[in-house]
């Protein structure tokens, strides 16, 4: 059999088992959020009572609002800072302290969260900042900007610079060139980066636990404290809602990106013919 024959039975088995492993737990979690019974292992009929209970749970709603505000603001800050960092990494081959800079971009990607959380908390304490909404937002912006930077960088290195040069040759000042030519071209990367930063913030338990204060309990912190008391269908329900939001968001982002890709290919083809 040649290597080009496509999927072997072995490959099909590996993928089936692999994806079953990745998806079954999530599917089971979603199914049992609609369970009539409080037991999460015995099916007792379809019900939406846990969703109703959820919307009457003021603590969960408050936590969701805090999380949403933190995620919206931190992902926006992370996108701005991460875009600048990605530009610096992709475009400026040499500047003073570049090694340190690259280190500070890549390290947060793998840094254990307990270390990041503890170190940021100690910073806020030394600066005598009150812990709460703002400190969590700053912490989230810091660790997610690294992800945005990497996404923007990889988009920029595969980027045709002749378009920018053409704009400059036609007399566009650098800032205008950036806004009119570069930014629209890297926009899909910015959107992907923003979405990733948003979900990272939505998801984070450890760093938020360290850097948050009274009155700024995030949704993962609330979920975690309930999970420690046991598995309940209410948590399955809130999990299902979060999964649905992410699934819709990611599909939308993928679709827009794909549509843009198709349009760009068509335009390129037209340009070549012309």
């Amino acid at each position: 059999m040649s290597a080009r024959d496509g999927l072997s039975p072995f490959g099909v088995t590996a993928l089936t088992l692999g994806f079953a492993f990745l998806y079954l737990p999530i599917v089971i979690l979603v199914i049992f959020s609609f369970n009539e019974s409080r037991l999460v292992t015995v099916w007792a009929g379809f019900s939406t009572r846990w969703y109703v209970a959820l919307f009457q749970n003021q603590q969960i709603i408050d936590a969701a609002m805090v999380t949403l505000r933190v995620a919206l603001l931190s992902s926006t800050i992370a996108t701005i800072l991460g875009t600048l960092a990605g530009l610096a990494l992709a475009r400026f081959a040499r500047f003073r302290g570049r090694t340190l800079f690259t280190g500070m971009i890549y390290a947060p990607l793998v840094m254990p969260e307990v270390i990041t959380g503890l170190s940021l908390l100690l910073l806020f304490v030394s600066l005598d900042w009150d812990r709460g909404y703002w400190t969590v937002t700053l912490a989230h912006a810091t660790f997610s900007m690294a992800y945005v930077a990497v996404i923007v960088q990889s988009r920029l290195v595969g980027f045709d610079r002749s378009l920018e040069e053409a704009a400059m040759d036609l007399g566009a000042p650098p800032l205008k060139t950036f806004l009119v030519v570069t930014l629209p071209l890297i926009a899909p990367a910015l959107l992907a980066g923003w979405l990733l930063a948003f979900t990272l913030s939505l998801d984070d338990l450890v760093i938020a636990s360290f850097t948050s204060g009274p009155g700024a309990t995030t949704l993962p912190m609330r979920i975690y404290s309930q999970v420690r008391l046991g598995v309940t269908p209410e948590i399955n329900a809130i999990s299902t809602i979060l999964i649905a939001i992410v699934a819709v968001g990611v599909s939308l982002a993928t679709l827009t990106q794909k549509r843009q890709l198709v349009r760009r290919r068509r335009e390129e083809a037209l340009a070549r013919r012309a």
Partner: peptide, 12 residues
């Protein structure tokens, strides 16, 4: 999808 939720899913 949320890391916490995916870990939680395994408890049940």
């Amino acid at each position: 999808t949320s890391f916490l939720i995916r870990v939680y899913a395994w408890i049940g």
